[in-house]
Design a protein around this nucleic acid. Structure first.
Lengths: 328, 328
DNA sequence: TGAGCCGCATCGCATTTCTTGATGACGACA
DNA sequence: TGTCGTCATCAAGAAATGCGATGCGGCTCA
């Protein structure tokens, strides 16, 4: 096929300058080179592009037509080159992360947009799921890493503590507790709880906690749907117990109360395949996830200051308000 | 600047095949070559186009974007290449031809369209003018050749007979002569003639002819405008004398009669600069001009056959007719 | 788990292509 | 007529391209 980009550039220069010599200067080449390139082009196309009469080069009709199209080629090429510029400078590759719904509610969005902005050349894929399938997928290498509740280590997995977050009681707005004030579960009468099913690691901890601390559960509904659980709690007098990191951002429909006497803590661990080191990109987004998690989780570190209630009393009387920032 | 066309082709192949090896086969290259080209491309752009994890190549977001634009580049290039295909095979260059209005009326159009069709890569320029300036321009090399009335040769000009054509009397439709029938000028009473000015070579011949053959010219108007002359003759009882080759195609507004007793002949000569040979393209179009001239001029070779009047009696009564083909 | 396979990266070398400077032909200008 | 400017051509060196061989990592199958 006729015509490298260099040929075309030199031809365009010669066409515009109406002179091989001038074209050579413009393109930092020699007159000889221009002449040869154009001859090659003409030979390849089977058409003369210039008529070289009288010591002047004048484009032939073919040259005129070809020039128009060559402009298109060069513009397309420049466009192509520019297109990738925004991707330069950052990390690249493909990251597949497994997260539980717990993590995706508050943590994911800010981290994802920050990472995608800084490293646009990375393909980030989030797989939402519960601990068992996520663990399996990390083992098989489908996931670069996942964050799951702590569990006894498995062969092929490398794990470490990612975050320790308190479990919190979540109720509808009309519950008779103040938002963010620590509560003792044992003090709640006729406790109706929406809990994850028994396959969920946390269900075990919660039941153990209740048993050890004399908490009496009046009724239980099993639900493994996070969005559904929140919605149901918001519209009923049922409550649920969720990891604090998940409720780090207030939901205007819900009240949240850390458990006390004693607190119930959830350990989330990072798991990755032990056979290979994490990619730079995965390490980077993990660090960002961790930093954001710590930042959000700080809400639960201290007993709620007096300002907590003031900052975000979800609808103190009962009139609806415009939604404002819910950060602590 | 990053990216030769070969780079881009190999990248596109690799992108589409999702495999360097397959791309290499498709582009008749080796896997090694593909790998190197793409590395060069990535280095030049400063961006990774593929992530090479797990023995598979997967395009990065930058690769996706770049691919879209590369398609444009390749299509533009193919378009450019195709654009010049119709120009291939014929002659090229630039031809500048000087012709008198005499020649441009009937002769030029068919030759020009035939030549332009067969040799689209030639720039043909027609300069219309009278013999003196044309001759001058041939001498200076502005014109490749010109066709002018015969004259005494000039230094720097090479000339030869191009065509011998009879002069013909041209009258309006209501003149009392039959179209195409030879007439003797001496037999025309009160002859009112539109003639070219004295700078025109033909004026001399016509006056000599009239003097030698006892033709009495009642009145003369000088006009060097061919189109104007024809229009004026068509709308008046004035007549004119024109070269037969010019009237080889009938004008429905006019009657034409070759001069007889004796005929008046006009010799047209081809002139070209003597210092350099004519270009191939000029020779070609000249040959076509000559062939067409001979063909058209054949109308005057024989006395008008009986069919002549039948073939084209310009408006026998006086009702206007739809314009039809006027060839003899 | 280990052998074999497949895919990409890298290396050194052969080849092609590109580039250059010198030279020649042609026309323009004075 | 000689000088200048332009393009074409040539030969030689420089640069790139392309290729086969080899290495590395992951996958698959026994």
């Amino acid at each position: 096929m006729a015509g490298s980009l260099r040929d075309i550039r030199l031809f365009v220069a010669a066409y515009e300058e109406r002179s091989f010599t001038a074209a050579a200067q413009r393109e930092h080449a020699t007159q000889s080179g221009v002449s040869q390139h154009i001859r090659k082009l003409e030979h390849g196309l089977g058409v003369n592009l210039f008529s070289r009469d009288k010591g002047q080069v004048a484009p032939t009709p073919a040259g005129d037509s070809y020039y128009q199209r060559c402009i298109d080629v060069l513009r397309a090429h420049a466009t192509a080159t520019n297109t990738v510029k925004p991707f330069a400078g950052g990390l690249d590759g493909q990251i597949v992360i497994g997260l539980m719904p717990t993590m995706t509610r508050c943590l994911l969005a800010p981290v994802l947009s920050a990472y995608a902005g800084a490293h646009p050349n990375t393909v980030v894929r989030i797989v939402e799921g519960y601990s068992a399938p996520l663990t399996q997928q990390v083992r098989s290498g489908e996931l670069d890493f996942a964050i799951v509740p702590a569990f006894a280590g498995l062969p092929g997995l490398k794990s470490r503590l990612f975050l320790r977050t308190p479990e919190v009681l979540v109720s509808a707005l009309d519950a008779d507790v103040a938002h963010m004030v620590p509560v003792s579960l044992g003090a709640v009468r006729s406790l109706k709880l929406v809990l994850p099913s028994k396959v969920n690691t946390r269900r075990q901890s919660i039941e153990t906690y209740c048993g050890s601390n004399g908490v009496e559960i009046a009724r239980v509904i099993e639900m493994d749907a996070m969005m559904g659980t929140l919605d149901f709690v918001a519209r009923s007098d049922w409550r649920t117990i969720l990891p604090g990191i998940m409720m780090a951002v207030d939901d205007p429909r819900l009240k949240v109360n850390p458990l006390c006497d004693p607190p119930l803590l959830l350990d989330l661990v990072l798991i990755e395949p032990s056979r290979r080191p994490m990619s730079k990109a995965a390490e980077t987004i993990l660090a960002m996830l961790e930093a954001e998690a710590v930042r959000l989780n700080a809400r639960w570190d201290a007993p709620p200051p007096a300002s907590a209630r003031l900052t975000q009393p979800p609808r103190p009387p009962s009139k609806p308000r415009a939604k404002t920032g819910h950060r602590s």
